[in-house]
Amino acid sequence: MSSTRRRFTGLAVGALALATTAAAARAATELTVYTALEADQLKAYQAAFEKANPDVKIRWVRDSTGIVTAKLLAEKANPQADVVMGLAATSLMLLDKEGLLLPYAPKGLEKVKPTMRDPADPPKWVGMDVWSSALCFNTVEAGKRGLEAPTSWADLTDPAYKGQITMPNPASSGTGFLMVSAWLQMMGEEKGWAYMDALHQNVAAYTHSGSKPCRQAGAGEYTIGLSFEYRANKTKKDGAPIEVILPKEGLGWDMEAIGIVKTTKKLEAAKKLADWAVSEEANRLYAQNFAIVALPGIASRLEHVPGDIEAMLIENDFAWAAANRERILAEWSKRYDGKSEPRS
């Protein structure tokens, strides 16, 4: 189908869909992209991509990792998304298991670090960046309460922190899940759950989003927020009196990745987005938010995050995490759901 004809069809459909004026003004293909990226990142990515591809326009459907994953699974009979971008690799692996993703090798795939793509060839998904857990520690509130800054995961079970910790609910938040997954992998199942039982004693609330704990710590609502490095860096940059702490045992992490939904009717445009996502331009943009990105040599340092994140990442078995995701979440909900914020 030629692009003009497609445009024409798009126009006709748009007219039918009551959105006549809007559609007529927009002659570009509209891609529906499901994402769990932070809202403040979306704008920059969209602007750069649309500048490079003026004939494609992105429509984001944004929610937290758990919800986007659940939505995609719920819609599997009738997928609404064309592309999934910036969703946790563990979630994309789940979608792949359901046969929802289209194998596609974006242009420039060869440059991507081999650890940051689906090993299948062509890959169903390609990584964009790595995001990892981080603690936000409010120094002002800690001072008022005479609390020492924690340096490890283990420190967090100290009764002194009782009621001062918030963490994201792993069922809805990818950040929450990567923490739980990391603890279970680092400590083993039994000790991992025992650790979480102890931590649970200190947790004031499980939040829906991975950002909120850090935001709350920044606002002094609670002293410690279990969050991720991008949000921690940003919150501090916004002026919050926090210290960003990377627990010394190692950091849970996951990749944000992109994949094309098999049923898309806008394959050309979807491929363009996938191609752009592995380009150097895109990686430089990722690097403004994340220390580790898919292309080698572009890694950056986050201003307010101390230490070498890459070195602190744990060995992460994605296959295991994806395969056990449902079981882990069920167990977690059974144990701790009572303190969960709504929407978990």
Binding site: G66, I67, A70, K71, L73, A74, A171, S172, A205, H208, G338, K339, S340, E341, P342, R343, S344
Partner: peptide, 23 residues
Amino acid sequence: PKVIGGSFNVLAVDVYKQVVGQQ
């Protein structure tokens, strides 16, 4: 209740949780 309910669950939020959160 969504904003300030904390862990105090109510029906209206349950609907939302079931549908939006867990599909």
